[in-house]
Design a protein around this nucleic acid. Structure first.
Lengths: 340, 340
DNA sequence: TGGACTTACGCAATCGATTGTGTAATGTTG
DNA sequence: CAACATTACACAATCGATTGCGTAAGTCCA
């Protein structure tokens, strides 16, 4: 109907038109749901609601926030939205946020300390009611500072310290990979470990190394190379591994994109997958299955992770206490890691 | 220093502490840059600035907006951040926004009409100063409605109507692909065209069909299949093409991810690239070069596109008039389209 | 029938920053 | 030296929604 006619419909405008006081209108409109209406006569309530929707009234977020200092805004900080994994997590967050009547505000930190700080304070200036960090760093005190300001937050994808988090069980995922590689007879594995300050990278790596250690096989430190979780990072890390000339018989990339980068490197070194080298990724992104040699990987519930993170945050914002969650991963075996 | 001690430092607090009036403090702090200080004595200016930074003062965004009804918020609506292309465009937008002192607010529309409407009005409620749409639809009146509310906006990646936009020159990109395919002797091409309501899809497709037409070769309608710009969409579209059994000697996917999906389909049909079928993608995402058979594709300046879109929007918001931009694409030939 | 409630609202202060309109004090000019 | 212009601020209204407190009118029970 006559929706966006008037650029700004205020509470006073509809109150005046109805000949009643703005405060009454406010109470009626806000009491929606819970208590029907002890604030106005049933007939008045109807007239208010009707006119509000007819005029397309929406409360001025700024005025409301100024008065109440409450906000239904949630800030989300991720390393990088370009990363499919975090983009998917964010979609889960956004989806759940909408269901909870919250709005989200994302930004990239690129895992850089200055960005994290600047973006976080920008969000606090925007009076977010809570924060979700997807870029937690191990051994870093930044989050302690945030916690000290008692603004609710949860971590997603990566964890650190004792902060509430929703993550995949990356250690288990790593173990699944390790067991799989042993089962197909690979003993000389190299790990493209990802960023050293990310719990995901550390745990996935540890999962593999622990399994191998339990089988009496050590993985030397020079077989574990760190680098970004993307194609370029995977290629560089694989190059570093292959440069030595002592080729591994398996490469575990802690991320599918890094695995694809490694694929490029293997190809350039004349090594084929899985004959010479078994290749395993992580996350089961949609590309994994489409490769010429489909990629073995670990499926992680990225979307759900985002949803749960928002839900936990909403609970915390509502004053409830919650506990961290670790979601189970699943090994998906494909052609890139057949028996040698 | 003593940064986040006091949860809320207001203008009045620092004014009181200095024994002057809040209005003076406001003027001094806001006059930063342009006019040095005709609002207070040089010494007072210094005292104000010092105390402000010492106390970690930041204006309450809500109070300021309530008063001025101006906002340095920019709303960005994209089809889907999970799409690397749009995520990259968004990174360009965000980067430029920060340089301009603007904040951005992204959301996914998933190309659905109801979402576009709901998210847009949510942004308008948040009093955004301008909008950037990455999900423009051809033959759709939605943007006319927005234009009627005279809120500044620009389109990015896709265009429609006469609205200001920053896009790649997709028609040219399509022509480059067409000419390349002809030059390597492929005449029986199938096109995985992408979403029919996207200008990117339409123009890239037209570029190829026009070149072929000029060479006297028609591309029949059943060789042009529409679908989402992702791996699953590419796979499905390729399946549709190959189902007939009349195999093409080239497939042009209007998006790299769709090309990778097509790769999976070709593999399953026992067709190899480039021997049986030449494969060409679009966007030159980082994965293209890493494929076992590196992917020929068209490089488009996604990041710059985002930057320019924000810059044009900032100009419009500043009252200047601007014109649309079409950025030049570049063909990147790789192994997936060698001479047959 | 009078006091105690209840119903249905109205009043006015408040959140914090911004800005048009003063005004006292100082400086300048003819 | 008087008239006038600056300088350096202060006052107070304003943006729109929220909310503690107040109150007139009506209902109920003893």
């Amino acid at each position: 109907m006559g929706e966006s006619r008037n650029p700004t419909v205020t509470l006073r405008m509809i109150a005046d038109e109805l000949g009643i006081h703005p405060s009454t209108v406010s109470r009626v409109l806000n009491a929606s749901g819970s208590d029907p209406s002890k604030w106005a006569a049933a007939e008045t309530v109807q007239r208010i609601r009707n006119l509000a929707t007819e005029r397309g009234y929406h409360p001025n977020v700024y005025a409301a926030n100024l008065r109440t200092a409450r906000s239904n805004l949630v800030g989300v900080i991720v390393p990088r939205l370009q990363d499919y994994v975090l983009a998917t997590v964010y979609e889960g967050i956004e989806e759940a946020a909408i269901e909870h009547g919250l709005s989200t505000f994302v930004t990239n930190s690129l895992d850089r300390a200055d960005n994290r700080r600047a973006r976080t304070s920008m969000m606090i200036e925007r009076r977010v009611g809570g924060l979700i960090f997807g870029d937690a760093h191990l051994e870093d005190s930044f989050l302690e500072e945030i916690a000290a300001q008692d603004i609710p937050f949860v971590l997603v994808s990566r964890y650190t310290g004792a902060h509430i988090s929703v993550t995949g069980d990356d250690y288990l995922g790593g173990r699944l990979v390790g067991e799989h590689l042993l089962s197909i007879g690979r003993r000389n594995v190299a790990i493209l470990a990802g960023l050293p300050f990310a719990s995901t990278a550390r745990d996935r790596t540890r999962g593999v190394t622990d399994v191998f250690k339990e089988a009496g096989i050590g993985i030397s430190a020079d077989r574990i190379v760190h680098g970004p979780f993307d194609a370029a990072g995977g290629r560089a890390a694989a190059n570093a591994v292959l440069r030595s000339g002592r080729y591994p018989d398996a490469i575990f990339a802690t991320n599918d994109f890094a695995a694809i980068g490694a694929l490029g490197s293997l190809r350039d070194h004349g090594l084929s997958v899985p004959e010479h080298v078994a290749l395993v990724g992580y996350n089961d992104t949609p590309l994994a299955a489409e490769m010429l040699v489909p990629l073995t990987t670990v499926r992680s519930p990225m979307h759900v992770m985002g949803r749960r993170a928002l839900e936990l945050l909403a609970d915390i914002m509502a004053g409830q206490s919650v506990v961290s969650e670790h979601l189970k991963p699943e090994l998906i075996v494909r052609a890139s890691s057949r028996i040698a």
